[in-house]
Design a protein around this nucleic acid. Structure first.
Lengths: 123, 123
DNA sequence: GTAACCGCTTTCCTTTGGGTAAGTAAGGAC
DNA sequence: GTCCTTACTTACCCAAAGGAAAGCGGTTAC
């Protein structure tokens, strides 16, 4: 039995697993982060988002927007113009994802580098 | 058009999106992190893992172990006992996930608290 | 022999995520 | 009246993920 002292212990792991899975559940899917990042830049209308997040269908975008609103990452605002215009904007709460995204981004980048290197070695 | 100055800008977002998606691709799935966390505590045999990660089927566990080995998170070690015993152990590289897991865990925890609170308000 | 255990693999089935395309209600342009 | 736009919804389809259960080759126990 080999125990790695540098890594977290049993209790810490089991406690955090639930948290991590909860976090991933929210962040997960092909489009959620793309939509959040799109709206963090500026608030936008449905068709604008669909144009900017290339490849997403209206069905999926509608679903993602509902999910994100339920999780309080974005707000749906209806302006009483004629006809009404509907804007989606990122909430302050979506800012709490900043450090999570930063960590994931840093890790993802170094991981891609590592994969590239190991592919060079093999060829 | 409302721009949130406290959040990252356009370039930063678009650059990091790819990295984040790469990271999520590796981490993703119902079982990967559970298996990693299980093996980080100590190296284990197939049946031990299957017992500890409750609910995983042998088919899925076998697949996850292969994936994790390919991505260099774990090593498959065969010991020449009779019969041979096969141990899986976490590599040093799986330690690089530590800060990612820490962030995800912290965020997931506070998010769950927040969801609980907003459910109390509604009821 | 027979049964059981280990480390899987195989088969079959269901669920989930997502894609395509069409439709629709409300309003505006011509 | 007819068509266009906006913000979706609906219906149908497909592929990948995952679950259940059985099988399998090798080995040990009795």
């Amino acid at each position: 039995m080999i125990v790695n002292e540098q890594l977290p212990g049993v209790e810490e792991c089991e406690g955090s697993l639930k948290n991590v899975l909860d976090a991933l559940y929210v962040i997960n899917g092909k489009w959620k982060l793309a939509v959040i990042l799109c709206l963090v830049q500026s608030s936008k209308r449905f068709n604008e988002i669909q144009h900017e997040v290339t490849g997403i269908s209206s069905k999926v975008l509608a679903k993602e927007l509902k999910d994100l609103e339920l999780n309080d990452f974005i707000t749906r605002k209806v302006y009483p113009t004629t006809p009404v215009s509907i804007f989606y904007e990122a909430t302050e709460y979506s800012g709490t994802l900043k450090s999570v995204i930063a960590e994931l981004s840093a890790w993802g980048e170094q991981h891609r580098e590592k994969v590239k290197q190991s592919m060079r070695k093999q060829s």
